[in-house]
Structures are given as structure tokens and as C-alpha cells.
Write a protein that binds this DNA or RNA. Structure first.
Lengths: 199, 199
DNA sequence: GTCTATAAGGAGATAGAC
DNA sequence: GTCTATCTCCTTATAGAC
């Protein structure tokens, strides 16, 4: 968080405003005013509005979800799959609830149909790494007969979809207020899922 | 489909353009040009851009999903719940794939975070009637011991979420091309779901 | 009910002083 | 690297003729 860096400040301000008003709804003028500089000064850092948007995309694309929510603590639980799934789901939904990620998901949902700078922002892309991770985990669980012989693909889908829909619906309200409720519903989802797949 | 009615033509053109470029991305100018009249002529039918948007919302709010996908044919299958769920899911995904509904869902996803005319367009609202319908159906199935004693709420969620995520992801590609593939994945989902809940 | 004409303002972007 | 000033274009919306 080095707020002294104007270039970075422009980027985070643009993410704020784009995720709130959409790409077309937020103007360079508004970004400049919020940062505290004039419009023209923006062009010393980015040559166009489009370039700002693409810079935001690049920043998020460079982060991998695995390193954000997988760690040794969690992986130790793999011997207790029910506990693992609970922790995994809770960590995922908590990660999706961090301010940066909330903003990015909002932007993703809003702009997934509008091609900006010939780049597309798709939910499928956003979820692809997570899906892959889940397929691997469930493949392993199937191999060791911990869970029934389902297609890992369908298991990944069944695990992720309710969580992601939950996340997107709670994004509408600007606040974090209902995180306790969300965790409760997440646990209900994991309970159902686990009882459905356990071998 | 009375295309002679200018007012209705403006509405359907606006839905086309809003769902393609977003509310801010589509202009009155563009709508007028597409309809084949001047901008000023629009104002004989709607007093503002906002009013056009609200008219679209009102039109879709007036339609109930039950009458669109539930009918006697389908309800006859209730004695065979697996068949019923297959048909129900296929009908739902087919309904969501009709041109009008595709456009509306796109608009919903794009504009769910931007308050236009003090009205909010929320996924929760959009799915509420369907959720209610599912809770009723699953409650009945639980009562008659056809399915296990789960909370109908969680069953509704598990049934709907993967279908809705599937639908939103396939909305990105403008075409209908993959409907066969979608139906196949839908059936995999229903198979999994049914095997998880059957008593 | 549609047209021409135009207002009033916001958009993205650039030139050149400091 | 930021500023003032300005360009050009597009936006929503209105006035008034036909």
C-alpha cells in the first residue's frame, strides 16, 4: 500500500470507480478528481482510459488463486476431507470477500459482455484456475476411495457454483455486514455436498 | 410481434442495445438510428432514457416464470421425480436461452450494481420466484419420502446454482451454437443431484 | 408523431507553460 | 509530473415547424 505512487493510486481509484459505476459510467475526469490531480496529468501515466482498464486486468491476472487460499495448514487437513472442504470453502468465500476481490468480481460481472481493448473479461476465465484446482483435489479423493466415483468435473462444478452465486448475490449490498450469515450458508452447502459424495 | 408500433419497437431496440453495450454504453442516438427515427422523436414516447430502462424492467417483471416453464405435461411427471427434474431443468435452461430472456439476463448481470431511476435490478429478485417454486416442489418430494430429509432451501440452491452459472457463462458467446452441449451438462447436473437426494 | 435545429454539458484527449 | 487552456466529439434533452 504505497499511496505516494501516483500511477498506482490512479489504478486503485479507477478500480474503485469502474467497479462502482462501470467502465462507461466512470470518467477520466472523475478518476482524476478523486486522485486529486487534473485529467491531463493522468496521461503522463496511462495513454488512454482503455490502458487503465487493461492495467487493472493485468494486475489481477498475475495473481494466482492457489497461493491466496491454499497453504500448508489447509493441506494438512486433506486426511479429514470433510474438515478440508469446510475450510476450503470458507477460505474461498473469505478471499472473494476481500475489498480488492469484491471490486474485481463486480467489474467482471458488469463488463464481461463488453469487449474493451480487444480483451474479454470472462467468468469462465476467472474461475478456470479454481475449477482446475478442484478437479485435482476431487480426482485424488476419488482415487483413494474417500468419495464416490463421480466425474471430477461435475464435482468441481457442484462445489463451486453455489458458492459463486452466493458471492455474486451478496456483492450487491456494498457492505460486509452479512458475512456471518454467508459463512452459515456456506457450511450448509458443504454439508450437503459432502453427504452427497462421501464414499 | 407488432413491429408497426413505434413505442414497442423503441423498447425492444433499447433492450437489444442495452444488453449488448450496457445502459451507459448505448445512447438514445443509437436507439433512434436503429429504430429508424430521429432522437427527438423518441421523446414523444418516453420522456427520458431512464424511463425507457424502467419500461423494460416493468415488462419483464410482469411475466411469471411458472407460466413459462410449468405446464400440465411437466406436472404429470411428478410421479417420476427423476424424469421430472430432467425435464424441469431442460425447460428452465431452454427458457433462459430464448432471445428475450438471454438479453434480459445479460442486462441484469451488467446493471445489477448500478441504481437506475432508484430501481435496483438484482439477481436475487430475478431468481426469487424460481427459488420459491423449487422449495415447494422439494418440500413435497420430502413429505412423500421420495427424497431424503434435506432442507428444501438448500435443495433449491443446489439445483438452481449450477444451472444459473452455466447459463451466465454461455451468455458470453452471442450465439446459440452450444445448446446441445449445454443440455448434456444439464443432464449430468441433474443426474448428480438426483443421486444425491433420492430417498 | 416525426422532423430540423440547437442548447448545454460531459466525454476523451492534446498543446504547451512551468 | 502537474498545471491551464482548449479541441472535438458525443451525450441527453428541448423548441418549434410541418
Amino acid at each position: 500500500m504505497k499511496l505516494a505512487n501516483t500511477k498506482q493510486l490512479i489504478l486503485s481509484t479507477a478500480l474503485d470507480l469502474f467497479s462502482q459505476y462501470g467502465y462507461n459510467g466512470a470518467s477520466i475526469r472523475q478518476i482524476a478528481r478523486t486522485v486529486g490531480i487534473r485529467e491531463s496529468a493522468i496521461y503522463n501515466h496511462y495513454k488512454s482510459k482503455e490502458e487503465i482498464f487493461l492495467a487493472i486486468l493485468a494486475e489481477f491476472k498475475s495473481k494466482t488463486i492457489s497461493e491466496k487460499i491454499l497453504n500448508d495448514d489447509l493441506l494438512d487437513d486433506l486426511s479429514n476431507p470433510e474438515k478440508f472442504l469446510r475450510n476450503f470453502a470458507e477460505r474461498l468465500i473469505t478471499f472473494w470477500n476481500t475489498p480488492q476481490e469484491r471490486k474485481f468480481i463486480r467489474l467482471l460481472l458488469m463488463e464481461q459482455f463488453t469487449r474493451i481493448g480487444n480483451k474479454e473479461l470472462s467468468t469462465t476465465d476467472y474461475l478456470s484456475e479454481l475449477r482446475k484446482m478442484c478437479r485435482l483435489i476431487f480426482s485424488e479423493m476419488i482415487k483413494t476411495k474417500i468419495v464416490k466415483q463421480y466425474d471430477p468435473e461435475i464435482l468441481a462444478e457442484q462445489f463451486i457454483a453455489p458458492l459463486f452465486l452466493m458471492r455474486t448475490e451478496y456483492l450487491v449490498s456494498g457492505e460486509n455486514k452479512n458475512m456471518g450469515t454467508v459463512i452459515k450458508i456456506v457450511n450448509m452447502h458443504v454439508d450437503f455436498f459432502w453427504s452427497a459424495i462421501k464414499g
